[in-house]
Structure formats: structure tokens, C-alpha cells
Design a binder for these strands. Structure first.
Lengths: 217, 217
DNA sequence: AAGTCAAGATTGTTCAACAAAAATATCTAT
DNA sequence: ATAGATATTTTTGTTGAACAATCTTGACTT
């Protein structure tokens, strides 16, 4: 399904693979990525790898220290707070100016159903993915390619923060129902109320995450 | 004043220089950037230049075609519309949730005064710069590093679009007064009204730009 | 004028090299 | 033994050259 990597420049493919490893927790925050080691791991040249590193650094997923190398970024409380500030602005505004029958609403519904399925199957990563898909779909309501791309960058950074947590299993599950209620409001055309509900969702989610992070830190 | 380029990686410095050339119109939309020519021009290796190209491509300022090279991005009507959609969301929301005495308001005032000075001196590029500074300051009201960085990327893309225009001299001048009135409302603590005024500003600015682009196209 | 095919030029990627900086190990002197 | 100074090793930063793959150009044919 995700064989869409052919023809792209090597640096892009590399960045994609490393990004997946960062999001999945295979690479831990703070970890150092040696050019020699990683380029050997992927069987590519150091030069190509450096191009990929630049991309990921620009995404905020890696951190570049001069003459010392690149490290997996370490999200802090400030990071989380900033990300949620962005989410509040983007997601609430997107909902508030949405219109009836927008294609993104179908995507929202699909994500909610997928999350429900995953929850019934106790598939925690599946819930996380579906949750992310739901909120990306919300941003798509704004009909802006640049906004959507920006949001995926932010979402990746957020998922990196999840890597800091010990048991993130039950972190998404309680929110499936809130997503469903946001969806219901949107489908009924009550976009202002949907935005308000989203605001509550984000407050709650942020607080939960910050608390988990504090305990894990 | 802008000697802040020491110590940074070469690719970053290169990207910054090329970005400046793109914004200043020294490089025109559609133009092809040959790796050999540009790397010779800056006296750097092709490898380093390619890193810089990747950065700028990610910023939307360059366009990468496989096996064909990189070109200066060509903004279209769709680009403008998307950028203004982003601006409306960011700038209006930032104003609406601003608070009295926010440091960014001082920056807004400084930009307005600078624009006024530039207009009196018939310094058109100066007006453009001050105008950009004003709107960046508005976004700073949101207190989000990620949002601010995103906005500078969008602003750079917008300035690239100005490059398509023949006489952009009088494009910013009429808006100096609107900025001043937005500032006045913000300083008086009337943030909702300021946001509404900003919305009108953006509508007008977008329409003006689209029309100019149509005539120049 | 349209199509074919052989140069010619450009990108994509790798490798090897070396200077500069940082990390690590070694050696004092107290 | 410990703190500090020095030498050694490892890494990053950057370059130049090389070569395959691909695109462009231009000559040649029909």
C-alpha cells in the first residue's frame, strides 16, 4: 500500500524512512545519529544521508549541533505547549469555517470508524494512527495545501514526544469518543460547536500529555 | 547589522544567500539553477549546494524535477489564494487572541513608523520590508515559535510572487494606512475589531495582487 | 517536416581525501 | 589518587573526481 517511494530522490526516501523510525519510537529522543553508522545502515553515501538529515532537521525532528553531529530532538514541555498552541489555532479555525458536505468530513468519519475498530481490537498503535488521521482531516477542512503540510510536520513532532512516554497505550483511547462527538457536530453542520468541542479536546489532551511527560521525565 | 552568518553550516549560509536573491528578484521565477553554474558562482562544491537546494525546495521557493534540475518556483493564482488563506487564518486569529501590552505590539508600531518614514522618502523596497515586518509581528502575537517560523516561509513565497510583477512600487503603499489603523485598534485593546480590519486588509491585498498578476501574466 | 539516432551535457550518487573540531586516552605533577 | 595538560583518535565539514542514468541537442535520413 505504501510503495510510493519509487522515482523520488534518495534523500527524500531516506528522510521518509528515518522519519518513520522516529515516529515509531525506534529512535529515541536524545540519541545521537552518527553519519558513518547510519549511512552504513542504509547502504548510502554520507553525502546523501546529510541531505536527508538537513530535511529532518528543518522538520524539527532532528537537532544539528555544529561539529558535533545530529541528535534526535528532545521534546520539552515548551515544545508540547507550542505544538498545542498551533493545533488550537489551526484545528479550531478549520472547523469554524468549514462547510457542509466538505470531502474532509468523510475522511474524519473514516478515521473515527477506524479508531473504533482499533479500540475494539485493543490495537493501540492503530488507535494512535487513526486519531492522527482524524485531526489531519480536520485541518484539511481549511482547504490549504500549505496548512496541511505544516500540520503533518507538527504532528510528527508530537508523535516524537510520545516516544518519551512509557505506557502510551491508554493515551489516545479516551479521546476516541471526543473525536466522534466532534464529528457528529460537524456532520450536523454545527461547526462553531464542533470548534468549541475541539478546544476542550485539545485542552484535555495537552494536560494529559504534560502530566504523563512530567511523570516520565 | 546582519553579520549573523558565522559558524552556521555552509548549506544554511548558502540557502540564506540564495533565498535573499530569490526575494530580491535577482533570480526570476521559472529560471533554471544549474548545479555547476551556481556552485561555481558561490565557490562551493556541488554536494554542499545540493544540501542548500533541498532546504529551499522544502520552503517552496525552488522546485525540483527529477533528473532535470531545480527551478525557481513559479507562483500561480492558486499559490496566491492558498497563501492568503493561510494568512487570514494566522493573522486574524493571532490578533483576536492577543493581549494588552504584548511585546509584539511594540514591534508592530515600529514597523508602521518605519513604513511611514519609507513612504515619505519614496523608498518603495523599504515600504515592502516594513510591511512584511508588520505582519510578521502580528503573527508573533500568537506566541508560537513554530507559527512564526511557518509564517516567514509563507512570506518568502509571497515575496517571490511579487517578482512576477512589473511595477510593484505602488503595491504596498496604499496599505500602510490600513496597517496603522489595525495597530491603533490593537493598541486600544480592540482586538476583535483589529482582526476584522485585518480580514478586510487581506481581502483587498489579495484582490489587488491577483489583478496585478493577471495583467502581468 | 517529421522522425531517428548518435553525441553532448546534466543530474544522481558514490567514494576517497583532508582540514578542523571534538572526544578520548595518556601522562604528568602535586 | 586527582586535577590538569597534552597527545591520540574519532567525527564532522567540505571538497574534488568519477561514473551511470537520464535528458537535451543537433545532425542525418526519409
Amino acid at each position: 500500500m505504501s510503495e510510493s517511494a519509487e522515482g523520488l530522490p534518495l534523500a527524500d526516501r531516506l528522510a521518509r524512512e528515518i522519519r518513520a523510525m522516529l515516529i515509531s519510537g525506534e529512535l529515541m529522543p536524545g540519541e545521537r545519529l552518527s553519519e558513518a553508522a547510519v549511512s552504513a545502515r542504509f547502504a548510502v553515501s554520507r553525502n546523501s544521508l546529510r541531505e536527508a538529515f538537513r530535511l529532518l532537521t528543518k522538520d524539527g525532528l532532528l537537532r544539528h549541533e555544529a561539529n558535533r553531529g545530529v541528535f534526535v530532538a528532545v521534546p520539552t514541555m515548551a515544545t508540547i505547549i507550542d505544538i498545542y498552541r498551533v493545533r488550537r489555532m489551526l484545528e479550531c479555525a478549520a472547523l469554524r469555517q468549514a462547510w457542509n458536505g466538505h470531502p474532509a468530513i468523510r475522511a474524519m468519519r473514516a478515521a473515527v470508524e477506524e479508531a473504533d475498530r482499533a479500540r475494539r481490537g485493543a490495537d493501540w498503535p492503530g488507535i494512535g494512527n487513526a486519531n492522527m488521521a482524524f485531526h489531519a482531516a480536520v485541518v484539511d477542512l481549511a482547504d490549504s495545501a500549505r496548512l496541511a503540510e505544516f500540520y503533518t510536520r507538527i504532528a510528527a513532532e508530537l508523535r516524537l514526544a510520545f516516544g518519551l512516554l512509557h505506557d502510551q497505550e491508554h493515551l489516545h483511547a479516551p479521546f476516541v469518543d471526543m473525536n466522534a462527538s466532534i464529528l457528529a457536530l460537524a456532520e450536523a453542520g454545527h461547526f462553531a460547536e464542533a470548534a468549541d468541542e475541539m478546544s476542550r479536546y485539545l485542552d484535555l489532551s495537552e494536560r494529559t500529555l504534560l502530566k504523563s511527560l512530567e511523570q516520565a521525565g
